[in-house]
Design a protein around this nucleic acid. Structure first.
Lengths: 263, 263
DNA sequence: CGGGGATTTGACACATATCAAGAGCGGTGG
DNA sequence: CCACCGCTCTTGATATGTGTCAAATCCCCG
């Protein structure tokens, strides 16, 4: 086990210690949130920027916003003005069809950028909802654009972030279009595991923030099917699952089950 | 979001008539391809730019490339250096899983930009294959980036193009995750219809460039299921279909069938 | 401690996949 | 011009994976 792995706390509580909530301003805090002092720097928009460049990004982000579990960060149809970087907590984005059907299009954790789908249409097209008490950095789009003019590395980085979102969605399309239920869940769990690891948490033990139904919606399955797949994995000894608590016991087993037509 | 908008942001046109093929240079022509003189301008990257700005984009695009049906424009793993705008013809992009399964992630017609998924990873992650003899404008990414610094409108437009691709993929995710076979095909046909219309072609009568299998791959269905859905639509009088030739007779009928659990 | 949502599990239904056979169409070469 | 070949498409019969419905249990939260 690597030194880094030893330090992993089983559960995230990476909330940075700077107090920002200002009751006189509702849930918007006017304190500057310095990217240069943020532990998520390497996972977030400033990834790859040098110190000087990050200082410029500091100019950009001057508000944070706190949300309680269940609150919406933005809703479909809202005018688009900002992107949001998750500082702490966990979000889902949900897209709705006019006939009422909807689907979770993504789960978003610290360091990840939300709201990029709003740029083209100039309005948000999905709802972003906090799955636990959360905090985001507000990135005004117009400022990001103009700063992008001056700071080449930032411009390039932002293109990369957009492009990576496209790549992620390609992956989801593949999952939805070609995989069986258990493969989908295995892929999902391993993906979560990696993302937790990248944030310094245990890759093998974590709490799910979303319900079976939300997982199912994201994976194009019904909640019962998700539940059965969890049980199956437990039987097989791949994982240990107790409600929202998941322990991954056999990564290889899970991976093997990803490439299989049937059991 | 409307059901029809589910799959694609519009971007259209008509084939420009400038001869460019230069046999001494293989399939790369060194003739300048002026956006300012291109009929696809309003569907393509320069959409929304003023005359002066389009002139600057002219600097950007200095090669075109012709492909015969079946040829690859780029392959997964290729180093990323350029984006491509479809000038004429028709493409599919295919993403492959390591176990050999693959999926069509998109069909691309004139005015549409391909290759954006390569920016983040700095390598192409899917294969782009011409479904008929085609021609593309090569957009060197490094030049696009540096020109974006000077021309604000271009930078913004490019963000929009990237964002629209994200929106399109959200739509496909919804389709794959929540729709039944016939709904998927109806959505697909109406989307194609809109895109043809935006390009000045008939929205009610067109030739499919792709096989039933390719449609199925894109829609997460088997070719037999696609074929049966076509037959069903014909029985219902929604369309007339003869191999690759499709005539849409009843748009309302197709739309109605999009929001239904079962027949 | 009570209540309601979340989860699990079972029985059954149904949509789509799979397997198979034959027809249609387009291109090639005699 | 015709015949052949291969690929695509259509259609039928059957298999199967996942959805649907229902009931019981769990557990979190007030």
């Amino acid at each position: 086990m690597t030194a880094a792995a030893v330090m992993q706390s089983p559960m995230p509580s990476s909330r940075a210690a700077i107090p920002v909530y200002d009751p006189t301003r509702g849930n918007v805090a006017k304190f500057p949130t310095r990217c240069s002092a943020c532990g998520l720097r390497e996972l977030c928009l400033p990834c790859g920027l040098n110190g000087q460049e990050v200082d410029r990004v500091d100019e950009l982000i001057y508000t944070r916003r706190r949300l309680k579990r269940g609150e919406s960060l933005y809703r479909a149809g809202d005018a688009f003005s900002s992107l949001y970087a998750v500082r702490s907590g966990f979000f889902k984005t949900v897209q709705t069809l006019e006939d009422g059907r909807d689907q979770v299009t993504g789960f978003h954790m610290s360091g990840e950028i939300m709201g990029m789908d709003g740029i083209g249409p100039d309005a948000h097209i999905c709802n972003a909802i906090a799955l636990e008490d959360s905090e985001v950095c507000v990135i005004p789009y117009s400022r990001l654009e103009s700063l992008g003019r001056e700071v080449h590395a930032l411009r390039h980085q932002f293109y990369k972030v957009l492009s990576s979102e496209i790549v992620r969605e390609h992956g989801v399309m593949l999952l939805l279009g070609t995989m069986r239920a258990e493969e989908r869940l295995a892929t999902f769990l391993l993906n979560l595991s990696q993302r937790f690891m990248a944030r310094g948490y245990s890759p093998s033990e974590f709490n799910l923030r979303m319900t079976r139904e939300e997982i199912g919606s994201y994976l194009g399955l019904k909640l019962e099917t998700v539940s059965r797949a969890f049980s199956k994995f437990q039987e097989e000894g791949f994982i240990n699952v107790q409600q929202k608590h998941v322990q991954i016991l056999d990564v290889v087993g899970l991976k093997r089950c990803m490439g299989q037509k049937s059991e």
